[in-house]
Amino acid sequence: MSLNRRHLLESGAKRVHLLVGSTQRKFWFGSAVVATVVAGCVDNATHPEVQPWLPSAGLHGGVACVPNQDGAIAASEMAPILGATARFRIAGPRPVDLGGVIDANGLRTWDWSWSAAAEPGHLSAVRSLADQWYAKQFAQAGGTLFAAPFDVGPEFDAVYRHDEGGVWLLGLASRTEHPSAGQTLLRYEAPVLTVKAPLVAGLKWSAQGAIKNGILRGLPYAGTDSYDFEVVAAGKLTLPDLTVAQALQLRALVTAQSVYGTSAARSQASFVAECVGEIARATAAPPGFPQASEVRRLAL
C-alpha cells in the first residue's frame, strides 16, 4: 500500500487527512490517529484531592534531621516526622542485657542482635493529632502535637507534644471513639516530660501526671502516675538490622496510683538515638529486669 495514494484507515466514524506540501498529496494515518481526534471530550475520571506533584507538597523531602553525634540529643533531634512509620520486632518474655560490655576502646556496647525471624512485626506510625477524634481534648498552643500507638495492641494511642523542652506526654485515648471495649480518654492535668532535651548520659528527672474525670474503657477513672527517669548509659547498640553508634539508655519507673486504691508499677528501658528516636525498648513488671515482659526492636 503506497502512501502516495489515498488510504482509508478507519477506526470509528472519523478520518483524518493531511495535506502536505505543494504536491497536494493526501496522507491518511492509521486508526490511532483517528482515535485521538475522537478522544478530546472525556472528563478526567479520577481527580486526586492531594497531588505530590505540586511545588508545596514536598516531593523531594530529603532527610529531615541529620545526627551530629555530639553525645546529646537536642530537642531538634527529637522532632517527630508526621506520617512516618517505623517497623518493630516484638519479642515475648525473655532476659535482656541492660549493662552491656565495655570493649577494648572503653566503649559500652549492647548486643541485642538475636534473630528476629520468629518475632512478629509491628508498624508504629506517628500521626498528626489534628486528624484524631480526641484532638479537641488535647488541643493546646505551642509545639507539635502528635499521636502514636501506646503499645503493640490496637486499642490505645498516646498523645504527645514536642517542643524545645523535649517530648511531653499529654495523655492516653482509645484509637477509635467508640471501641467495643468502651472509650478511653485519660488526660493529664499537666503534661509529663518523658524525654528531656538535651538528653545526655547521667540526666535524671521526675514527673507526676494527675488524671481527673478520666474514662478508662468506658468507666470513670482518676489517679496519679509517678515517673522517675534516668539516662543510665551511652554506647553502641547492635540490633538485627541496624547498628547505632551513639545510643542513650533511658530508664523509666512508672507507678500508677488510682483514687480507688489500686496501684501498678512498670519498669522500662529505652534506647534512643539522635534523629531516629526510640530504637529499642524493654518493659518489665515487678520485680523488674533482667527479665523483660516485652522487647521491641527497630527493624527495616
Binding site: V42, D43, N44, A45, T46, H47, P48, V50, Q51, P52, W53, L54
Partner: peptide, 26 residues
C-alpha cells in the same frame, strides 16, 4: 490523560500530574 484515569496508587499518588484546579480536565 497521562494519569490514565487510574486514580491514585496505594501511596496516594497519581502516576502523572493532573490539573489541580480543574477536576474534569484531562
Amino acid at each position: 490523560n497521562l494519569d490514565l484515569d487510574r486514580g491514585v496508587d496505594p501511596a496516594g499518588r497519581s502516576i502523572y500530574p493532573v490539573p489541580p484546579a480543574s477536576p474534569a480536565s484531562q
